[in-house]
Design a protein around this nucleic acid. Structure first.
Length: 733
DNA sequence: ATAGGGTTAG
């Protein structure tokens, strides 16, 4: 065993004075302070036990504090020391709560607090509260926090600035901004920490404006901001995406001579990248003498989010250590910019290389990529990985899984995930409602919405978008109106532009075009392109030329590049036999160089994604696919199928050519491919980027009957489940 | 003895 470098000076001499006044100069305390490893501390512990000094609560608390707080100490051994103290004093109790509060098990801090209240003769003092409140904040327990707040007031400690600052932090962590602000305003002498907690908390909670306002008030009240303040203020600038303000803050820091440490530099860097100035960021990055992993990750994230993937990858390759956050930054950069395939291939590379272990965030990004692509095989692998690794489903992951299964067409699996978890936040509920909505199960979506309210989880604006969307896809006009009208008076959510669009969609689809127009005219906010787009879509369904022209005009005013508007209007002309209108549009599109977005369908077989563009013959099995398609057409026609050409953009004049063009629609190629290569027991899942045309819809219905196959087709707006000659949308789409 | 900070997420 290792021995102490210096012999302990005659411990025994002091051992008799245990019950006397505490001797602050007791040499053993000096030794405790000077310990550099746990075995030295262990020896002192043994000495104190032998001499009986350990049985003096004050002396024991000194040893215990050291074993709990010195840099080399571990929580486990500290706990063992504590358990040996016959009558721990208040200081020891406080210290134990303190170390638990910042340990991986903060709940223990609260349990120890309760034990102290029940078992010890002490009342919590002004030191106890900050520690135990921190523990409550760590586990985001608002109700424990409120109880502690009450106890602190009862103990006449409600005005203590340390306790108030802890409470501000607690309330902000739990999202109770009002209570935090109430505590804040009650502090007589706010110190810099009070301001910092409030500013940082508000900035993180999305109240950047208010955070900046407080920073100005702080200055007016003459409290000097420090480096921590500026981190919070910069975080507010980043959230506001306000580069000018951010630059001003950086010059303010320089002007006031505020200490710039690594964290503050990183915050400046983050502000620059979030506000979109890679130049400023790069300049700062090159100037920074000290860099840590956060510096590198922030820079990498900036490049990735702004679409500079090459540079981002270079940063990843050159950074000193690639932790999972770095990979996540790049993967989520791809995913958020719609580059799902790249996101998944990077995820694959990460798994192959085993440089870092995927965490919940990695999986959320990868699952979102799967959802976008409709890559269910890969999505299922990720789900299996989650189970294998015993990764606990948090609400983020649950939401992503539900979203992935829904968007890949397996609403049953989405529901399985939903029912398998015991914690559901507003995002989980909203995702499930959205899933049911896109599968046309409007009634179920509405039922789920009612059940959500029984759980006391408050719907947000996204929830309402999804509920209205459910009403739209299922043709529930009356219900949609009711929900919309309840939003503000009952739920306190002011309808946003997306809710107005949904309402126009609900009314328009149901054929209530005049009412939809009236609704638009009465809108208190300016109608957006999505509102006019919804009206135009409805005009296509119901063949209303006049309103279609009106909607198209407004739509193009707001978004002149919107090629979808031309396609929809052209479809209305074609449907109503107005061929002059069709050719006028065609000419206009040719002159302006606008092209119809190319149709693209995707199908996954054995984890490989096959992509088909309209009329493309790039697929290695192209020949087979076309001959299969011919066979299908013959079989369909003998069953009475007549091609419906009104769904063409009418860019092709010849009749035969038109029919040929129809057959080239990407979803038909995918169906032909799926019939051959997807196992018979499995449904054929197809993802299309545009809306399915009427002809393809009829073909899919017939194929499902004649070939006795289930076809699940996701188009731009929703799912169609074809089986036995019918579609789940009941032809209402 | 006490409180507050930056990167990755639907």
């Amino acid at each position: 065993m290792e021995t102490l470098s210096t012999p302990l000076p005659s411990l025994r001499r002091y051992s008799t004075s245990v019950n006397n006044d505490h001797d602050h100069d007791h040499p053993v305390f000096l030794h405790i302070k000077q310990c550099t490893n746990s075995s030295q501390l262990g020896q002192i512990h043994a000495h104190m036990l032998r001499t009986g000094l350990f049985f003096d609560p004050y002396s024991a608390s000194k040893l215990f504090a050291a074993s709990a707080l010195l840099p080399f100490s571990s929580l486990d051994s500290a706990r063992k020391v504590f358990d040996q103290i016959p009558k721990p004093n208040l200081h020891s109790w406080n210290t134990l709560i303190r170390v638990y509060a910042s340990s991986p098990e903060p709940l223990q801090g609260i349990l120890i607090f309760l034990r102290m209240v029940h078992e010890s003769p002490y009342y919590p003092n002004k030191f106890t509260f900050p520690f135990v409140i921190k523990a409550a904040a760590e586990i985001f327990s608002l109700c424990v926090g409120q109880a502690l707040h009450g106890l602190a007031i009862k103990a006449s400690l409600g005005a203590d600035v340390f306790i108030s600052n802890s409470l501000i932090h607690l309330y902000l962590s739990c999202g109770d901004l009002d209570s935090a602000y109430r505590v804040f305003t009650m502090i007589g002498e706010k110190d810099v920490v009070s301001w910092n907690s409030m500013i940082t908390g508000l900035a993180q909670r999305g109240c950047a404006e208010k955070a900046f306002q407080l920073f100005q008030e702080m200055e007016e009240e003459g409290v000097k901001p420090n480096d921590v303040t500026m981190v919070g203020v910069l975080s507010a600038c980043a959230k506001k995406l306000d580069l000018e303000l951010g630059r001003w803050v950086c010059s303010y820091i320089e002007r006031k001579g505020i200490r710039v440490d690594l964290t503050l530099s990183n915050a400046m860097l983050d502000m620059y990248t979030k506000c979109g100035s890679l130049e400023d960021a790069k300049r700062l990055f090159d100037m920074m003498e000290e860099k840590d992993i956060v510096t590198w990750t922030t820079m990498l994230d900036g490049y990735a989010k702004l679409g500079e993937y090459e540079t981002a990858k270079q940063v990843l390759d050159t950074m000193p250590r690639q932790d999972i956050a770095a990979w996540n930054a790049l993967i989520s950069g791809y995913e958020q910019n719609g580059k799902s395939k790249e996101a998944l291939s990077l995820y694959h590379e990460l798994q192959q290389s085993q440089i870092a272990k995927p965490d919940g965030i990695t999986l959320v990004s990868a699952l979102s990529a799967c959802a976008q692509l409709g890559a269910m095989g890969i999505g299922e692998c990720i789900h299996a990985y989650v189970k294998e690794q015993g990764i606990k489903l948090n609400c983020h992951l649950t939401t992503s899984l539900i979203d992935m299964y829904s968007k890949c067409g397996d609403i049953k699996k989405a529901l399985d995930v939903f029912y398998s978890v015991d914690r559901r936040d507003v995002f989980v509920w909203s995702a499930m409602i959205a899933g049911l909505a896109m599968h046309g199960q409007g009634r179920d979506a509405i039922d789920l919405f009612s059940r959500m309210q029984e759980t006391m989880i408050k719907p947000n604006s996204v929830t309402f978008t999804n509920v209205l969307c459910a009403c739209s896809h299922a043709g529930l006009v009356k219900e949609g109106k009711t929900f919309f009208n309840q939003m503000e008076p009952v739920y306190g959510i002011r309808p946003g532009i997306q809710h107005y669009s949904c309402m126009v969609d609900i009314l328009g689809r149901a054929g209530l075009l005049e009412e939809a127009v009236e609704f638009i005219e009465k809108m208190p906010i300016l109608p957006s392109d999505s509102v006019w787009g919804a009206l135009l879509g409805a005009c296509q369904i119901h063949g209303n030329v006049e309103l279609a022209e009106l909607a198209c005009r407004h739509l193009l005013e707001l978004d002149p590049e919107n090629n979808g508007a031309y396609v929809l209007l052209s479809n209305v002309y074609a449907k109503t036999g107005k061929w002059d209108g069709v050719s006028r549009l065609r000419k206009h599109m040719r002159v302006t160089g606008l092209k119809k977005e190319q149709g693209c369908s995707r199908i996954e077989v054995n984890g490989v994604i096959h992509e088909f563009l309209a009329g493309d013959n790039c697929h290695p099995l192209s020949k087979e696919i076309y001959s299969k398609l011919d066979e299908i057409m013959v079989r369909l026609k003998s069953a009475g199928y007549v091609p419906n050409k009104s769904h063409l953009l009418q860019l092709i004049e010849e009749d035969e050519m038109q029919e040929h063009a129809l057959n080239l629609h990407s979803e038909k190629l995918a169906i032909a491919f799926g019939l051959q290569y997807v196992e018979v027991s499995q449904p054929i899942r197809i993802i299309k980027n545009l809306r399915v045309c009427g002809d393809c819809h009829s073909v899919a219905k017939l194929v499902s009957r004649l070939y006795n196959r289930e076809i699940i087709l996701r188009d731009r707006y929703r799912f169609h489940h074809f089986s036995g000659g019918n579609c789940s949308c009941k032809d209402y789409w």
